[in-house]
Amino acid sequence: MSRTMRRKNERYEYTWVLKDWDLYIKCGIRVRHDSRSSAGRNAIAIFHSDKQVTMGTSAPRWYRRLYDRCRRTRNNRVMKHWLDGKDFDPLFEARHRHGANWSWW
């Protein structure tokens, strides 16, 4: 199902989207754009384009390598104990594409 069909009749509350975050972070002044102004339409377009600050970047490569290596080591250790005849059910940590990114944030 496409994203457009899922969001077809969805109603959004744009209070935090229309907030001028640069001015708020620098000066502490709360300014809210009008949804029909060019700045407001731009903020809404960025919100709907799925290009958020956290989505645009991922964890550094060195951290992702370290995270994957630790996970592989834990899984190999569990497999070794199970193959040695220990009486327990092996429980492996499944790989997920965003696992390192989620733990980084």
Rank of each mutant, 00 (worst) to 15 (best):
A39C: 13
Y63S: 00
S103C: 07
N75D: 02
W82N: 03
R6Y: 05
R36M: 12
A43M: 07
D89T: 13
A45Q: 04
C27H: 09
T54R: 15
R3D: 03
R7T: 07
R97Q: 04
L66T: 08
C70T: 10
N101H: 06
R3F: 02
S35Q: 11
A45W: 01
S58A: 05
V78H: 01
G40S: 05
C70W: 06
N9A: 08
T15C: 14
W16Y: 13
D68G: 03
D50N: 15
W16I: 06
A94W: 12
N101C: 06
R32Y: 09
L66H: 13
N76M: 01
R65A: 08
W82M: 05
I44Q: 02
D22Q: 12
A43G: 02
K19Q: 06
M5I: 08
R7G: 02
R41C: 11
Y12V: 08
M1P: 10
R41A: 07
V31P: 02
R74I: 05
W104C: 00
R32G: 00
D22F: 11
N9M: 13
H96P: 06
R41M: 15
H96A: 08
P90E: 06
M79F: 04
S58H: 13
S37W: 03
N76I: 02
T57V: 09
R6A: 13
T15W: 09
S103I: 08
W16Q: 09
M79E: 10
G40A: 05
K8V: 04
G28P: 01
H81W: 05
D68W: 04
N76A: 05
I44D: 00
V17N: 00
R64G: 03
L23E: 14
R97H: 04
W16F: 11
G40F: 00
T73G: 10
D34P: 08
H96D: 09
D22W: 11
H33E: 00
R97P: 01
